[in-house]
Amino acid sequence: MVSVVYEAPDSIEGAVNLLANADVPAHILAGGTDLIIQTNGSSDAERLFVDVKKIAGMTEANLTDTALVLGPSMSCAAFTECDDIKAVFPGLVEAAYLIGSTQVQGRASVGGNLCNSSPAADTIPALIANGAQCVIAGPGGERTVPVEEFVTGVGRNCMEKGELLKQITIARPAANTSDAYLRFIPRTEMDIAVAGAGVSITLDDNGTCTAARVGIGAVAPTALLVPDAAAALVGSTLDDAALQAAADAASAASSPITDRRGTVEYRRQVVGVLVKRAATIAAERAKGG
């Protein structure tokens, strides 16, 4: 069993200091829904947990005139209660709502989901679709990374020793823009995504798509931004042919594996179906909004 050292600093500097100077494997404790299970299965003798939830701003969300500034450790349950955010980013909120059970949402956070860097993370395709930026604090100060570049591999991300995710920011979208996130699971709840798709759509007054972003999950080592799928949608009225072209582009961009949750063939096919369906929902919302 791992011997745990627990610290709960009240400032970013304090957290960075602890993380940078740790002489045992150091982990950021946000909701803990992944970390506590992983620690139980770990062969580490000792681990440092830095609980970041006592740091100001880490568990809050603020939607301004220009952007959403999301404290990465805000619980999904609290996040999904923010009606103002839901009105602007319904797909992102849906993605947060899909993580685990009500109980898990009481602890799990968007930032935790991102930093755990699972290929199947629900919020990452939705963050990608919305062009989210990750603000990372570290011993050398702050840097900002686009979300699609944050995750670098299965369970790996671009954060170096001593760094932590301080904020997730998303610019307010243009008028007539909305998003949607869909995932496929065998049951109705509680499963890890077999495939996921987040789509953001901007329409002009005639219902023609002027901009789109498509993120897909669980079909490659990291969630992917799929420009080809977006390109297939832009310029169209999201007719069947355009949707199918986007679906095909998503399937083509995927490089899934076969595991206990799905096969290569199945995932490749279903991710296309999800892109099609999510794009349709996002477009409906963009019209309505």
């Binding site: 049951r187 109705t188 709840e189 509680m190 499963d191 890890i192 206990r260 949750r261």
Partner: peptide, 14 residues
């Protein structure tokens, strides 16, 4: 799949 995550018994919502 030795857990309730991937040994998928029915849920209330199913």
């Amino acid at each position: 799949n030795p857990g309730f995550l991937d040994y998928r018994i029915p849920l209330a919502s199913d």
